[in-house]
Design a binder for these strands. Structure first.
Length: 353
DNA sequence: TTGATTTGACCAAG
DNA sequence: CTTGGTCAAATCAA
């Protein structure tokens, strides 16, 4: 269990650190010789990083709140706090998989409203790094556009229960409202994220090279531009969403470590000190909602997000226990379950080897 | 052939 | 009843 939060912390820290590094990058690009595109791109990436981090924090804060034992530790969740009793256990009466309907409801849910500035930028945030598989589409009453239903590609293999809904906004078709449900418990996903990040950074790198050498700004690079709203809607159930299957600690590592301009992260591990006290007790299920409009378009009136916290903690998510025994699960133990602390060797390539 | 998408049916909740 | 969410067979694509 704890390893999940470990992973999340790493990802979180990764995002924050990345944001910091990107900000540094941005600072160096404030001189007039740098192109506007570069700066825009950096801003996008920074916002994206912080947005991800905040999303995670909201989730973690919720978990901490819902489970008093962990509250003190907040997202830093001491391993012992959740150790003992896993709420699942019986799972005997789910003969039909029909009661996924019930269980779905208990998953955490949050919404991102993604504005797409250009057609190609569309993929910037709609493709969030996870691999999704569409499993349905439905016309929604009062909506001009159908809602698409996606679930994690690795659901069957790894029991990842994450799903998302994508709905195009009526008024502004460039806005997509993406509702996420559940956290990814799959292993591949984080790698994909990293891969993507790396990808985009490399693109930035290329971009910079191009600009420096041939002064040839390219539209494509800035089309990441999205306006992004995130609200945490339903943080119901403090139950263990991640039954017994957790991530290995690896994913954030291997690819990040290698290259590029953002002397990636973790090297200067003063991060812990900076964020732990501040984030321990964020206002949980309140309108944790932020909005940015990097495209400098007008803000759209999405500011009032009613939080309908329907927390029926009675529902227990019992993901297939079999997942625990999956081969992937072994990875779980291949890496030391160290308590995550500020000395976590992110910057040590060997750790991820 | 395998994996993803489409799409109508089905189910639960309200 | 209606509606939103999911399933699963058919279909498409690599």
């Amino acid at each position: 269990m704890e390893k999940t939060s470990e992973w999340e912390q790493k990802t979180l820290i990764n995002e924050l650190t990345q944001g910091k590094d990107l900000a540094k990058q941005l600072r160096t690009h404030l001189n007039p010789s740098s192109s506007n595109e570069t700066r825009k791109f950096l801003v996008e990436k920074i916002l994206s990083s912080y947005e991800k981090a905040l999303s995670m924090l909201k989730w973690d804060a919720f978990v901490g709140e819902a489970r008093p034992t962990a509250a003190a530790g907040g997202m830093l969740e001491s391993p012992s706090s959740l150790a003992g009793s896993s709420p699942r256990s019986e799972g005997s009466d789910r003969d039909s998989n029909r009661d996924v309907y019930k269980k779905r409801k208990t998953l955490p849910r949050w919404t991102e409203q993604v504005r797409v500035c250009s057609e190609t930028g569309l993929e910037g945030h709609l493709d969030d790094g996870y691999s999704w598989r569409k499993y349905g589409q439905k016309d929604i009453l009062g909506a001009n556009y159908p809602r698409g239903y996606y679930r994690c590609t690795h659901r069957n293999v790894q029991g990842c229960l994450a799903t998302k809904q994508v709905q195009r906004s009526d008024e502004d078709p460039s806005i997509f409202e993406i509702t996420y449900r559940g956290r990814h418990t799959c292993i591949l996903a984080p790698r994909l994220i990293v891969a993507r990040e790396k990808e985009s950074k490399q693109r930035l790198q290329q971009q910079q090279h191009q600009q420096e050498k041939q002064k040839q700004p390219q539209e494509t690079f800035i089309e990441f531009g999205t306006g992004l709203n995130v609200k945490t809607e339903d943080l119901d159930t403090g139950e263990k969403i991640f039954p017994s299957f957790t991530f290995p600690s690896t994913p954030v590592g291997s690819e990040i470590v290698d290259d590029y301009i953002f002397s990636q992260t973790m090297a200067e591990n003063n991060f812990m000190g900076s964020f732990s006290p501040a984030f321990i007790s964020p206002a949980t299920s309140e309108s944790n909602y932020f909005q940015v409009s990097p495209c400098q378009m007008n803000n759209f009136g999405l500011g009032n997000n009613l939080q309908t916290s329907e927390s029926d903690l009675t529902e227990i998510i019992s993901a297939p226990t079999s997942v625990t025994n999956s081969p992937m699960g072994d990875l779980d133990f291949s890496l030391s379950p160290v308590d995550f602390d500020s000395n976590f060797p992110f910057d040590n390539p060997e750790f991820f080897a």
